[in-house]
Amino acid sequence: MIDTPPSALTTAPAFLREVTGTRPRHGDADLPWLRAVAHRVQDAPDVFLSWLEEILGDEEAVRAAAKRSYWHPNGFAKMVLHASADFRIRLHVWPESAEPSRGESNPHSHRWEFASAIVAGEGLHMVEFRETTEGGKAYTRYRYGADPANPAALLADGGARLAVEAAPHVRRGDVYSCDTAIVHTVRPIEAGLTATVVVQGPHRAGTTVVYCEPGQTDDQPNGELTETDFRALVGAVAKAVAPCR
């Protein structure tokens, strides 16, 4: 683990000072700690809102965060609010639309553990899967992160059948946690603005899996997220969080 220098902590926003100060001293940002930070977001919306307002009031912070962020191919924004050696805090936003977003419709796992908290909207519908030799649905399996020359590429890794193992609804006030073994999909419950804070730990694996339906293209590039997009989306989330203060 790489500790944050004391000088950096004294100038950091109150929310970051608080959560960084509770990080395990011996070991890294493990799943129990990630869950504790996600619960803090739920329990102290005023402190979290103050951090969002500080970011929006700092042009350099907006510029840096926007550069780390992007539009997911399925139409939602992945914005990195904080990035350090052993943990990240991201804000995922599904803008208000006439129809519910598909969310992340390809079953996938992660190279890192995370915990998330809903801060705007009704919540998210998750479906968790397991590979099976009988029944289920056929997919093409890909490995993400397996190509050193292009870490974002999806490399074909044979066929697989997936069966549904669980289908949890994560609503506002809940915290959802996920380790590297879980394969899932994510979509908003409703069509209105939905946002979740994702507290991400360090990489635990070099690659992860993504499953696509047969015939589905594996060319799913991310989209550019501008500073204007960032301000509008974070501003909308801040407005949604404000009544909870």
Rank of each mutant, 00 (worst) to 15 (best):
E60G: 02
E60P: 00
E60S: 13
E60I: 05
E60K: 13
A61I: 06
A61V: 06
A61G: 08
V62Q: 09
V62I: 15
R63P: 00
A64W: 03
A64H: 13
A64M: 09
A65K: 05
A65W: 04
K67Y: 04
K67T: 14
K67E: 15
K67L: 14
K67H: 13
R68P: 01
R68T: 01
S69T: 07
Y70N: 08
W71N: 04
W71Q: 05
W71D: 07
W71H: 10
W71I: 04
P73Q: 11
P73D: 08
G75I: 10
G75Y: 06
G75C: 10
G75R: 08
G75T: 06
F76G: 02
F76V: 02
F76L: 09
A77M: 01
A77G: 01
A77L: 01
K78S: 08
K78M: 04
K78I: 07
K78E: 08
V80M: 06
V80A: 11
L81Q: 10
L81S: 08
H82V: 06
A83K: 14
S84C: 12
A85V: 12
A85E: 15
A85C: 07
D86M: 11
D86K: 07
F87P: 07
I89K: 05
I89R: 05
I89W: 03
L91H: 08
H92R: 10
V93S: 05
V93R: 05
W94H: 12
W94F: 14
P95S: 04
E96A: 15
E96S: 14
E96Q: 12
E96C: 01
S97H: 11
A98W: 08
E99Y: 04
E99C: 01
E99Q: 14
P100F: 01
P100N: 03
P100E: 01
S101N: 06
R102L: 14
R102K: 12
G103R: 01
G103L: 02
G103W: 00
E104C: 14
E104Q: 09
S105L: 01
S105E: 04
S105F: 00
P107I: 07
H108K: 11
H108T: 10
S109D: 15
S109C: 13
S109L: 02
R111W: 05
W112F: 15
W112P: 12
E113N: 14
E113Y: 02
F114A: 11
F114W: 14
F114D: 03
F114N: 10
A115W: 11
S116F: 02
S116D: 07
A117I: 08
A117M: 11
A117N: 12
I118C: 15
I118A: 13
V119D: 06
V119P: 06
A120D: 12
G121H: 08
G121P: 10
G121D: 12
E122N: 03
E122W: 00
E122G: 04
E122F: 00
G123V: 09
G123L: 11
G123K: 05
L124I: 11
L124E: 13
L124N: 09
H125T: 03
H125I: 00
H125E: 15
H125K: 12
H125W: 01
M126S: 08
M126G: 09
V127M: 09
E128C: 12
E128M: 04
E128G: 02
E128W: 01
